[in-house]
Every structure is written in structure tokens, then in C-alpha cells.
Design a protein around this nucleic acid. Structure first.
Length: 266
DNA sequence: CTTGCATGTGCAT
DNA sequence: TGCACCTGCAAGT
């Protein structure tokens, strides 16, 4: 269930556990066995996230390139027998990181990594992101902002929740085109993405509801649809907006369900 | 038990 | 535009 915050959190956790240590690398499932053998016993140097992509550096020219996709999981837990189908396992003897169902897991070179990163846009979770470059692209586009937000060549790491929630929080219609977006709106959007995604890395869940709209503040029940946090519009189609009471709408855009409040986002 | 859906992407049509 | 990938969870039977 990974947007960029999950990948950055993973990189942080992997570094904390393995960085500077020799590790065992294996593929219990077998599909990554030959590659794992090339790294087995090597020192784990560091992990790094760019958008939704995860790169693992060892004391080796081979870099592990992982993308979890929609259903992939990469979990750290005390060393035990693998549960289910494990494509890749990294362990220091105390903790095992097990990779399940990834979209991609393969070895690449430094050169290939640079090429992969070069295709990505600005990642709100990275210090080296360039919002000026992003503004130059967005402000010239006729595509809707909700479409632009899902484009990894522009906004790296943003997924379906992080496109819907900041637009709601800023009162921006998802159908606003890039060139219609004001510089002020773009700056607010970039800042809100960075704030929410950094919070997501810290918390391990996505919470976007402001203090004045929390269940406690408004005397309503916490939502039942548990995808990890409290949100305004994501997966709330047909339900009343917490702020204005208008029914939340949804429609498919860029192949994914877009959610918004027609009352708050004009 | 079965079915459907999900925070994603690439490829075939 | 649709589907394949492939896992986990919740809801329905």
C-alpha cells in the first residue's frame, strides 16, 4: 500500500537496522536467487528512496532496485521462518526484511540507477527536489492538476491519497488546469504535499484532517474504512463533507478513483 | 468459503 | 482503454 512516504520510511528503517553491517541476502521464493547470491555476505551500505522507487546499495557494484507496486510489501520483523512467498530476504541475524509481491525487484548498475532517477520529477520528501523546475512544467500544462499530481515524471512519490487530500485542504478543484493554477496555489500545494508526506513518514499512516475537523473536535465517529488514517475525501464518495456537508464525489481519472468535494473545491 | 477491491505501473490492443 | 501482475483484507455467501 505504498505512496512515497512508505518507501522513504522503509529506507530509513533499513538504514537504521542494516547500514554498515554484513548481511545475508536470499530469495526463499527462488525467483531472485541468482541475484541474491551475488550480494550474500556483503556489507549493506545504505538504502535510498526516490519517489516510489527504493534503491539498496551494498559493498558491490550491484544495486537492488525495488518498486512495490500496488500490492507489494517490504517488512522488517525479528528473524523467523519466512511467512508466505518471500522474493527477497535481507537479515543481519536479528531482524529480517522480507519482500512480498513487488512490482519490480532486480539488480541494476549505478548508470541504470541514474537513468531511472532522471526520469522522475520532484519528490516532496527529498531535499534536492526542485520546485522551480516543477512550476515551469505545471504552469505550462493544459492537463488537470489532479492528472499532473499522478504523473511521476512531475510529482515523484505522490499517489492517489496525496493527490486528493491536499487539493481538498487548499480548496482547489481537481479539474483546474496547470496553467490556470496560480503561483500562490502551486506554492501552497507543494508545501502541503511536503508537510503531509513528512508527517506520513513519521507516523506510518496518512492523516490529513486538521485539528478543528477531527472526530473528537466535531463529535462524530471515527471513520470505519481503515486504510491507515483520517482523511477528508479519499474513499468517502457519497458521504457528506466534514466541512460543508456536500456529498463527496468520485470519478476515474488517470485510471484511479479521484475523490473531491464540489462544495469546498471550486 | 468466495469475491471484490486497494496507497501502482507497463504493456497490449 | 483494459488488463496483468500478485498480496492482504473486508465483506458477502
Amino acid at each position: 500500500m505504498p505512496e512515497g512516504h512508505v518507501i522513504h520510511r522503509l529506507a530509513r528503517d533499513l538504514n537504521h537496522e542494516f547500514s554498515g553491517h554484513c548481511v545475508r541476502v536470499s530469495s526463499p521464493q527462488g525467483r531472485f536467487a541468482e541475484s541474491a547470491a551475488l550480494l550474500d555476505g556483503h556489507m549493506f551500505n545504505h538504502a535510498e528512496a526516490h519517489g516510489k522507487q527504493l534503491f539498496l546499495h551494498f559493498d558491490s557494484p550491484h544495486i537492488v532496485f525495488i518498486h512495490l507496486g500496488l500490492i507489494g510489501k517490504f517488512r522488517l520483523a525479528p528473524l523467523a521462518e519466512p511467512k508466505g512467498i518471500v522474493r527477497l530476504r535481507i537479515t543481519d541475524g536479528l531482524v529480517a526484511a522480507d519482500l512480498h509481491g513487488p512490482q519490480w525487484c532486480r539488480l541494476i548498475t549505478e548508470h541504470e540507477m541514474l537513468a531511472a532517477v532522471d526520469k522522475l520529477g520532484a519528490d516532496p520528501l527529498r531535499n534536492d527536489a526542485d520546485p522551480e523546475w516543477l512550476w515551469s512544467k505545471v504552469s505550462r500544462s493544459q492537463r488537470t492538476v489532479a492528472s499532473l499530481l499522478m504523473d511521476q515524471r512531475l510529482f515523484a512519490g505522490v499517489g492517489n491519497i496525496y493527490r486528493a487530500e491536499p487539493l481538498f485542504r487548499l480548496g482547489i478543484s481537481p479539474f483546474t488546469s496547470g496553467r490556470e493554477l496560480s503561483r500562490e496555489q502551486f506554492d501552497e500545494l507543494w508545501a502541503d504535499l511536503a508537510d503531509l508526506m513528512h508527517q506520513g513518514v513519521t507516523d506510518g499512516r496518512i492523516d490529513t484532517v486538521r485539528p478543528e475537523h477531527t472526530p473528537e473536535a466535531m463529535g462524530r465517529d471515527p471513520r470505519k474504512d481503515d486504510h491507515g488514517g483520517e482523511v477528508y475525501v479519499y474513499r468517502r464518495a457519497g458521504l457528506p463533507c466534514y466541512v460543508c456537508g456536500t456529498e463527496i464525489k468520485h470519478q476515474v481519472m488517470e485510471g484511479r478513483n479521484l475523490f473531491w468535494c464540489p462544495g469546498c473545491q471550486r
